[in-house]
Design a protein around this nucleic acid. Structure first.
Lengths: 254, 254
DNA sequence: TCAAAAGTGTTCCGAATACACCCATGC
DNA sequence: GCATGGGTGTATTCGGAACACTTTTGA
């Protein structure tokens, strides 16, 4: 932990952060900080969450969100992606912070505050590998979850609701599809995420009118019906449009 | 700090959270946790932020967001509101968490992770009182801010942008008005918050069509023009509507 | 030729927009 | 009367919703 020497002197001399009720300054520096990650995937038209089976105490043998303690010399956001990689092998994954959980008794070993992140895994990258103290990893359908360690059920729940909200106003859904996808795949993804039905022609028109997709010179292969055209999300175009005040919005009404 | 004795034994015996690189478990429990609060007010048609002048090291004499270290035996969210009360006297204020800042060097005294909250202060309650180590409190126009202590500029900035986003999709704006307000006050508030102009008749129609306001049997007094009708926000009605799938939405297009 | 999914066109309706206009009060 | 803000009405436009339809492929 890096600390400025001048300030450390002030701490000793009690000039610093003195609290009215005379709690020694050092007593405040006893928190553990952890990261817990709700990893979303999309497979066979279902939204799924990646859980690990813990091979370490506490809750050894239970299913849990991938997560771990952060060390004091590492930035939170860097730590978050390293922890995910360490436990699941997933690299360069979309990750976003969503909420911080700070109940006193959420961890049996002491006061641990945990920062919730969610990740979106592209279907191309659907094969995590358990390592470190994760005994195995497994994708669970979001509507069929096992019991979870700690307060992870609450964290997961909040993560799901956050994703459902954000996915409407920001084009993050694309992070759950392969780089190349068909409009019907996108359509089905949004139906699965939001739990509503969309009218096919209208959904297509709406998405295409946003001018966020590039149509590729490729089509589906090995399908026993008319092959669909493939599209990819145009990140650069989205940034341009945002500057012009464009607001991504998928209306919920089916 | 409450800890389960069984688990503490496991920590000693190193069964617990052992990390591959042999960092002792206790090394992880050296974080400080703090709360910083972006307090919004609305006064004279301007959105304002409440800052305190620090009367404690570090950054003594600087302007800063009201915030302080959390003690290990207190829930985060309870602590957040207590800290706000302690420094500014504000009680029972709307508060919502928005982001957690975890850079390594954001605090000179050690590793302090801070959780950002924003608060919305009703105009009825516009008189905070400095206490504890706050030398004074002062409302600043959001477009005319002084230099701030720590990384509070970044926190404030993120808080502002979060509020601007949320205010469009959730009826939180009402928390910045008195309990009784006129439609033009609401109109002006949204213009100030979002930095756009709305057409008066259209704004009225839109808001009223949502069926979220109760028209009171009262009108403005002591105004040198036709007195406006007063309205209040119908919290109960909003909850009902939400269950039915209603989504609050103020379109940005002026 | 038929199943299956891809993809298009058209009508209808309601909400958002852009206005012009009238009303009540204090001075 | 007139300045000031409060408040209403309406024609027009645009996008969402509903739904019927055609096209392309593999088997």
């Amino acid at each position: 932990m890096i600390a400025n020497v001048e300030y450390l002197k002030m701490i000793d001399s009690n000039k610093f952060f003195l609290s009215e009720n005379n709690v020694p300054f050092q007593e405040f520096f006893k928190f553990g900080l952890s990261v817990d990650c709700v990893v979303f995937g999309y497979h066979e038209e279902r939204v799924r969450v990646l859980l690990i089976e813990r091979n370490a105490e506490p809750y050894k043998g239970s299913w849990a969100l991938p997560g771990d303690l952060v060390s004091t010399d590492e930035d939170l956001r860097i730590s978050a992606s390293k922890i995910l990689t360490k436990l699941t092998g997933l690299k360069n994954i979309f990750m976003e912070q969503f909420f911080t959980f700070g109940s006193v008794n959420r961890h049996p070993a002491g006061r641990v505050v945990t920062v919730g992140y969610y990740s979106l895994v592209k279907s191309d990258n659907y094969q995590p590998v358990a390592s470190s103290w994760a005994r195995q990893t497994k994708w669970f359908d979001i509507d069929d979850l096992p019991e979870l360690a700690f307060d992870h059920e609450r964290i997961l729940d909040k993560g799901v609701r956050t994703l459902q909200r954000r996915v409407r106003y920001r084009p993050v859904g694309f992070e759950l599809l392969p780089n190349k996808f068909t409009l019907l795949e996108l359509h089905a993804l949004y139906e699965a995420l939001l739990g509503v039905k969309f009218d096919k022609p209208n959904f297509r028109k709406k998405i295409l009118s946003m001018d966020l997709l590039v149509q590729l010179d490729e089509v589906q292969e090995n399908v026993s019906h008319r092959p669909a055209k493939l599209f990819s999300f145009d990140e650069k175009r989205y940034k341009e449009l945002r500057k012009e005040g464009f607001a991504f919005d998928i209306t919920v009404k089916g």
